[in-house]
Each structure stands twice: as structure tokens, then as C-alpha cells.
Simulated assay, not measured.
Amino acid sequence: MFATADLCDQFSEELQIAEPIFKSFGEKRSFYGKIATVKVFEDNVLVVDQLEKIEEGSVLVVDGQASTKCALLGDRLATIAFDRKISGIIINGCVRDSAELEHIDVGILAIATNPLKSKKKGEGQVGISLHFGGVTWTPGEYIYCDGDGVVLAKRKLL
């Protein structure tokens, strides 16, 4: 078990601390792992693709460019993440099926909910550095999340 506050006390010089823009939707409230990234806009085809490909224990960071016009993840995709043992998903955008997400043992952070499903065009980018929430999310680096916040490190701290 870890606490982001303790990580900040011990490793503050090497951490980035994300702005507190996220709400927790998954059953798992504390999670960490290696970052995998995808950037999309109101289209979740690449989100599904990455959930089916990234390594077990990873955290998928989705830059939905802060759109609140539709959801990029719901219970079906969260179940894929659970089945594949993905540690968590962080979305700069919306989720749906929030009542069901509370019972899926995956860490899920997003900025809001919206019941509308996304487009299905397959447009976007994967495996790139993302910039939102006051930090840079770099593939292969590490992320630690709990009720106090989200911190990023260039190396595995636990």
C-alpha cells in the first residue's frame, strides 16, 4: 500500500503533481502503474484498442481534450480493463455508466460524466506525451493515484 502524500514527502523533488481536476469513478481508489497514452477527441475506438493491447498493471491515460460532450469509457470498456488486469484509467474527458463503474475493481479517474456514447471513427494518436492537468504524461513513466491526488514519476518508486 502507498499514499501519495508519503510519496510527496519522500520524493517531492522528482515528482509532478497533477491539478485536482479528476473525480474517482472506479471501485479501486488507490492505484499505480506504468503510463500508456492515447489522445482522442469524442472518439473512443483507440481507447478500446489500447485497453486490449497495453501490458498488465499499466495505467491508460486518455487525453480526450477535456470534451464533456460525450463519454469515452463506460462499463463495457472498464470490464475489459478489469479482465486484462489494467491498474487504472485516467481520462481528460467523461465516463458513463457511473453506477456500474463503482463496482468494477479498476481505478478510474475522469473529469465528469455524460450519458452519450462517443463517435467511432478511430481517429487520434497513441504512445505520445500528453499535456493536461498541469503535468506531462509520458509513456513508460509511472503514475500513483489515491484519494489525495495524482503524482507522476520518471521511475518506479514502489
Rank of each mutant, 00 (worst) to 15 (best):
T37Y: 03
T79E: 14
H103D: 12
A78W: 05
S129L: 07
E27Q: 14
G149P: 08
I54F: 12
G149W: 02
T138I: 14
F11V: 03
F82C: 13
I128Q: 08
D83P: 02
N114L: 09
L77R: 03
I86R: 01
G33L: 14
I128C: 06
A18N: 02
L15T: 02
I54W: 00
A110N: 01
L152Q: 09
S87Q: 01
S67H: 01
V106Y: 05
A153F: 12
T68W: 10
L72S: 04
I35W: 05
E19S: 11
S87F: 13
D75A: 15
A3T: 15
A3S: 15
L72Y: 00
K53P: 03
A81Q: 05
D97V: 08
A71M: 11
F11Y: 15
S12Q: 09
D105C: 11
E19L: 14
D105M: 11
R155H: 11
S118H: 01
Q65Y: 09
E19D: 06
G107N: 03
A66W: 06
P139V: 00
I80C: 04
D146M: 14
G133N: 07
C8D: 07
L152G: 07
K28S: 15
K23P: 00
R96E: 15
Y142F: 14
L101Q: 10
G134D: 11
I111A: 05
A3K: 06
I21V: 15
E27K: 10
D6C: 08
D105Y: 14
V135P: 00
L60V: 15
G88D: 07
V95C: 06
C8I: 15
V106T: 02
I90Q: 04
A36H: 11
S67R: 00
H103P: 01
T37Q: 11
P139A: 05
R29M: 08
D43F: 02
E102K: 15
G122Q: 02
T138C: 08
K156R: 09
G133Y: 03
C94Y: 02
V126F: 03
D63M: 08
R29N: 13
K28Q: 09
